[in-house]
Design a protein around this nucleic acid. Structure first.
Lengths: 193, 193
DNA sequence: ATTTTTTCTTAATCCAGATTAAGTAGCATT
DNA sequence: AATGCTACTTAATCTGGATTAAGAAAAAAT
């Protein structure tokens, strides 16, 4: 079992060695080259990815062709288009590798099976989803009440490892401004060192 | 057992009569008068509310004193400050009755107990939380990519029963505009009948 | 019924951030 | 080393929605 996944699971639940090895069998290790896609709009998201190396991003392309980043997934994070995955309908999102990325993939069928075999997993994923709800609520409130510069500060707290390594346009897209405005903003208020 | 709660639970899981009556015992029926609070900023959210009659709203007051509505809860919906509830920390949100409201209240302790006694509940609440994540993702994308008038249209689809009954300022606060702008917008583009 | 409060409207002015456009710098590819 | 790409910057102009201010109308309280 991947050590990152193990730590992740153990943060919420305890599983026996037997359960862990059964669970391990449900995952398949996969890779993506930089700029390749895990999912494209219109496809059906067939499973859930747990990133072990690299970086994924999910984004929506709106009716004017602009991209809006929903989530970045560095190692230790899950990634999927949950709407497409849960309802087995065409995806609205793209999921792309921003770096060469390794991940563990579990299909919806296997995940359902895993929930049946290892009921504690329901608990783990419930808590995971609840935390995601909290995070999206915070982000929504931030988008409604904070100016761009403070949303950027919030971003830096959320993804400290990415703040330096990510192209500015990706951060701009996440916090909801244009790259042009981001550039202006950042050059008036430089990064704290 | 309240018929609304029963239908709600049965949408995702099946429970025996015994389990249902045990679960029923965990809830206490409560009421709120109009404009009274279920929760105020700084308090710790001690439990989860399932609305059976009336209407609740949760909102955040930002540093400039402006309110931002996170959620409305008409009958059949759950309401809580999940961050405060899950982490037992002071709430950022207010939860207020917009109408005289009846709800079933379950404390965190009893909910934890219910999860232990009735493991299928984990599944139900996992699915609930996942759907909430999806809803917040959609709303976030809408806020980033749609003009106010289309966010209003989305609102009308999400809460069809509330579109007519709610004060405009509440709708404005939910979609993220000022009441003044909402008024201007709505009077340029009247409601479809 | 009258006062008070809250909701809703209109209109003028203002501003954060978008748009457009042009240019620079780096980094791949050939 | 030339030809792209893509990231990033700068600056002028524009705009969706905010702010401010005032009044009208509806609802609640007395």
């Amino acid at each position: 079992m991947d050590p990152l996944l193990l730590t992740h699971l153990q943060s919420n639940i305890h599983l026996t060695d037997e359960q862990l090895s059964e669970l391990e069998g449900f995952f398949q290790p996969r890779q993506l080259k930089k700029k390749h896609y895990l999912l494209q709009e219109g496809e059906i998201n067939l499973g859930l990815a747990f990133v072990t190396e690299g970086l994924l991003r999910s984004y929506k392309v709106d009716s004017n062709g602009f991209e809006h980043v929903l989530q970045f997934a560095p190692p230790g994070w899950w990634m999927a288009d949950m709407k497409s995955l849960n309802r087995q309908e065409p995806a609205e999102l793209f999921i792309e590798a921003l770096e060469p990325t390794a991940y563990l993939f579990i299909t919806r069928q296997k995940l359902d099976l895993a929930f049946k075999e290892i009921p504690q997993l329901e608990r783990h994923f419930r808590m995971l989803a609840e935390n995601a709800v909290i995070a999206y609520q915070q982000r929504l409130i931030g988008n409604l009440s904070l100016p761009a510069i403070e949303r950027f500060a919030t971003f830096c707290r959320l993804y400290p490892t990415l703040t330096r390594s990510l192209p500015h346009k990706q951060i701009a897209s996440f916090i909801g401004v244009t790259p042009e405005f981001f550039s202006k903003m950042i050059n008036n208020t430089p990064l704290p060192d």
